[in-house]
Simulated assay, not measured.
Amino acid sequence: MLFSDEENTLLMAEDAWLLKGYLLGNGQELLAALEQVIQQSPFRHMLTPGGYSMSASMTNCGSWGWVSDLNGYRYQMDDPITQSPWPKMPAIFFELAQQAANSVGFEHFSPDACLVNRYGVGAKLSLHQDKDETDFSQPIVSFSLGLPAMFEFGGLTRDAPKKVFLLEHGDVVVWGGKSRLNYHGIRSIKAGSHPVLGECRINLTFRRSQ
């Protein structure tokens, strides 16, 4: 069931929206598709170029996957652990991401990469820009499942003022246009337990990488 109430759409900044509860009604199908992805390419803690282990574990699906290691950040077509192509992006992922983008005016969104992050209690994602893609005309679409998270959304510089938004199970964030390169991050996940996913948060982030 997709949302139908305009009050569920919150403008966070210019060209950036929070769609509350957008995924509700699709959770079972999303999680079944996710299980197929992680069976092929399991979660792992990637290293930053500086040699630090990321606190959130991750994997990818789609034609391209985002990786980080001592050689830097980049997209590549093969999983460095399995040495095989990343799992195909499930149709339900693609369709819901495209529908969410269309609903706020980003028509013809065609993601070729889906980053899957798993946050345990205490995990976080430092303030950063999504700038490893080659086409900034396409938006970013982000799904939230499981435990709630506090999402920081700033501006085009790291020290720009930031707003903080509560992301809950079933929420979607879409940003592009003038906000496409805005800094953003996730504060440390607080202790709790989701009825289906337990003590974790899953985030699916859709991008057009090439």
Rank of each mutant, 00 (worst) to 15 (best):
M1G: 14
M1R: 14
M1E: 12
L2W: 04
L2E: 13
F3N: 09
N8W: 01
T9I: 15
L10N: 04
L11M: 11
D15Y: 02
W17Q: 07
W17M: 03
W17P: 02
W17I: 01
K20F: 04
Y22T: 00
Y22F: 15
L23D: 02
G25H: 07
N26H: 15
L31F: 12
A32G: 07
A32K: 15
A33S: 15
Q39I: 01
R44W: 10
R44M: 09
L47V: 01
T48H: 08
P49Y: 05
G50I: 00
G50D: 10
Y52W: 06
A56T: 12
S57I: 04
M58I: 12
T59R: 04
T59L: 03
C61D: 05
C61G: 09
G65W: 00
G65I: 12
D69T: 11
R74W: 01
Q76V: 12
P80G: 07
P80L: 05
Q83G: 06
W86S: 07
A91K: 13
F93R: 02
Q98F: 00
Q98N: 11
Q99L: 14
Q99I: 10
A100H: 02
A100V: 01
A101I: 03
G105P: 05
G105N: 04
P111D: 07
D112N: 12
A113S: 15
A113T: 15
C114A: 15
L115I: 15
N117C: 08
N117G: 11
L125H: 04
S126C: 09
H128M: 09
D130R: 05
K131I: 11
K131A: 12
E133N: 05
D135Q: 13
F136Q: 12
F136L: 14
I140T: 10
F143V: 03
S144E: 05
L147F: 11
L147Q: 08
G155T: 08
R158V: 13
P161E: 14
V164M: 02
F165P: 02
E168D: 14
G170D: 03
D171H: 08
V173E: 01
V173Y: 00
W175I: 10
W175R: 06
G177M: 04
K178T: 15
S179A: 15
G185A: 10
G185M: 02
S188F: 00
I189V: 15
A191F: 07
V196G: 05
I202T: 07
N203Q: 05
L204E: 05
F206N: 00
R207D: 09
S209N: 07
